[in-house]
Structure formats: structure tokens, C-alpha cells
């Protein structure tokens, strides 16, 4: 089922959570709403679910206006950030809940419910834990139960609020691959909220980057990472060095004073050389080297006094044999220039 949110505005008191946001999600896609806290991503998700109602705007499922429908009527599967499992019910009862509360004429038989729940337990690989209570499960297991409970009612869309936010790093990694796989199997239109850019880029078909109640960019992971539409997107999707710049004709100059433009360079798009190579470059002195990890992180002080972060592949670092306090040249391989709006200030 496709989802459309049209001109949504939502305020909480003085705070504007969503400012005239429109978004279209095609049927069958797995979409990430990505942004920092307070960007409105969770509010948008809750409005789609019917857990919150917008001040202005409409929500459509498959083109039908469902703005006035309550959460019960929308048939969405919602997975809560802290799972919201019913703690006085077993895993089985949790998953069966949505089927058991149906009006009698639509309620499946006892046996049908049991079969269905067992199939879901198999899907989440927790068949032998049906009689446990939520408090007896690990975080990752709870998360999967929450997902199975949402899927039991055969929802038309699946909405997940920070599905992996409360898990430790390793479980998080496993579960997000599992979610991707699951989606490839059942192809239900899914939207998940995250503040973790890595998660969004790895799992989603499309990423919606949000900031301060507005959508900054919608695109494939490749699009938003390599072709960011705004300084905010560039800045949010990875580490970045920030320089004052000046654009003349088609050339960019890096400056020590504010000049109307900001130059953004990712640390891994900077190279270090002992000699200027004729292209663009600037001088810097190496302050600190951290060689642990796949990339070597070099901190340097640029000739105008600002710190610069550079990430070099191990081989490149070894061939250069850099030393602390050494004077070197830094060569930008690719830069992004955005005019100074209030965005530069915000990006900090």
C-alpha cells in the first residue's frame, strides 16, 4: 500500500514539530526517516499511524484520505521504540492479541490463531519461547516479538519507531540485516525512524532526511550520501571538515574569514602529500595520528589555524611515513560548496 502525507503541519504548544511536510512513499518500499532528535521524524511516523493527528494536512493510503480514521481502523503495524509489549502476557498472548480483540465475526478460530502465531514465532526464530513473559527476554528478542505482534494483524503498512535504538551495537547490526531480509520476503510497505545514518543507508531503499520539522532531501542511499541537496544533509551523513570559502567563476578558494560560502570536505576525501601537486592544496602541520582501525585518522592544523581531520587508507599512510609535527600539504579530492545560510550555523 502506498502512503502519502500532504502538507502536514503539527505544533506542540510553541514548538513546531512538522512544518508543511509532504512525502510520498510508493507501495512495497522500505523507507528510512532520518534526522536528529527534534527533527519531527517520529511525529511524522505517529501521524501516519494515527497515534497523533496533524493540525493541518492529510494522510492518504493508496490514494484514499484516511485522515479521520483512528489508529484502530488504519490497520498499520506499529513497532514502538521500547517495544511496548504487554508485560502481563506471554510471548504467545502478545502476538495473538491483535487477532483476539477482533469482533467475533472477523475473529479467526482458536486453532487458526495458534497456527498463525506459531508461524510468526518461526519467522522470528523464537518458537521455543512462546510461554515466556517479556521480562524474561533479551532486548533483541523483545524487538522481534514486537515485530511479530505487529505483523500478526496483517497490516497494510509497517511502521517502526527507532526499531534498533535500544539495542547494543552487535545485536543492532544483526537485527537490521534481518529486517532487510524480512522485507525482501514479505514486501510490505515499511517506514522506520532512525537517527543513525549508517542504519538508514544500509537498510533502506530510500532515505528521507529531516531537520527541524522539514524534509531536507528524499533519495536513494547513494543519492543522499554522494549528492547531498543541502549542507545539512552533507553534514549529517558523515564526518566533515568545514572551511570558509569564496567562489569566483568556477573556482573555489578556501579562506580564513567568512566570505559567503562554506566548503565541506569529508576527511576521507582529503589526501596528504609532502609536495604540492600543482592542483588545489593547502599547508598544514600534523598534530595527532591515530592508526587504529581500517582508516588512519590524522589531525592537523591548517595554515590559517583551524583544525583539519584527514582519513587515509593504511597503505597510503604507511607509504607516506608521516610523523607528528611534520609540515605537509593537504589535497582535497572532492569538495561540496554551499552558500552560507543559517544552515551553516545550524550544521555546527
Amino acid at each position: 500500500m502506498s502512503i502519502e502525507a500532504v502538507n502536514i503541519t503539527k505544533r506542540f504548544g510553541q514548538f513546531t514539530a512538522l512544518d508543511n511536510v509532504s512525502l510520498e512513499i510508493p507501495s512495497g518500499e522500505l523507507v528510512a526517516l532520518l534526522g536528529p532528535s527534534g527533527s519531527g521524524k517520529t511525529t511524522l511516523l505517529r501521524i501516519i499511524a494515527g497515534l497523533e493527528f496533524p493540525d493541518i494536512g492529510t494522510v492518504r493510503f493508496d490514494g484514499r484520505d484516511i485522515s479521520d480514521r483512528s489508529a484502530q481502523e488504519r490497520r498499520v503495524g506499529f513497532v514502538f521504540q521500547h517495544y511496548a509489549l504487554f508485560r502481563h502476557m506471554t510471548v504467545f498472548e502478545n502476538i495473538a492479541f491483535g487477532l483476539q480483540v477482533r469482533p467475533r465475526e472477523f475473529r479467526p478460530s482458536r486453532n487458526q490463531i495458534r497456527t498463525k502465531v506459531h508461524n510468526l514465532l518461526k519467522l522470528i526464530q523464537l518458537e521455543n519461547l512462546a510461554d515466556r513473559y517479556p521480562s524474561q527476554l533479551s532486548g533483541g528478542q523483545r524487538q522481534r516479538v514486537a515485530l511479530a505482534r505487529a505483523l500478526a494483524v496483517e497490516p497494510s503498512v509497517l511502521l517502526l519507531d527507532e526499531p534498533f535504538g535500544a539495542l547494543d551495537a552487535k545485536v543492532r547490526m544483526e537485527l537490521r540485516r534481518w529486517l532487510r531480509q524480512l522485507h525482501d520476503e514479505i514486501h510490505i510497505t515499511s517506514v522506520f525512524v532512525t537517527h543513525d545514518q549508517e542504519e538508514a543507508l544500509e537498510v533502506a531503499d530510500r532515505v528521507v532526511v529531516m531537520n527541524e520539522g522539514r524534509i531536507e532531501q528524499v533519495g536513494s542511499p547513494d543519492d543522499v550520501y554522494n549528492r547531498p541537496a543541502s549542507a545539512f544533509v552533507y553534514n549529517f551523513l558523515g564526518n566533515v571538515n568545514l572551511f570558509h570559502g569564496r567562489v569566483e567563476e568556477d573556482k573555489t578558494y578556501i579562506h580564513e574569514v567568512e566570505t559567503g560560502h562554506v566548503v565541506y570536505v569529508r576527511p576521507h576525501l582529503l589526501d596528504i602529500a609532502r609536495l604540492p601537486n600543482g592542483g588545489s592544496h593547502f599547508r598544514a602541520r600534523i598534530k595527532h595520528i591515530n592508526a587504529a582501525g581500517p582508516l588512519v585518522k590524522v589531525e592537523a592544523i591548517a595554515e590559517w589555524g583551524d583544525p583539519v581531520r584527514v582519513e587515509l587508507p593504511q597503505e597510503r599512510f604507511r607509504s607516506l611515513q608521516l610523523m607528528k609535527n611534520e609540515e605537509v600539504f593537504i589535497i582535497p579530492k572532492d569538495v561540496q560548496v554551499f552558500p552560507v545560510r543559517n544552515e551553516a550555523a545550524r550544521a555546527k
Binding site: 497515534l51 506499529f78 514502538f80 508485560r87 505487529a150
Partner: peptide
Amino acid sequence: EEEEAALTLGASGWQ
């Protein structure tokens, strides 16, 4: 949160 979860699963207010 648990009440919201129940509502999204189709339960009525009384349920």
C-alpha cells in the same frame, strides 16, 4: 505506550 500498541493492533477503547 502499551495502550497505543493495543489500539494500533485494532483493540477498541474498552478492550
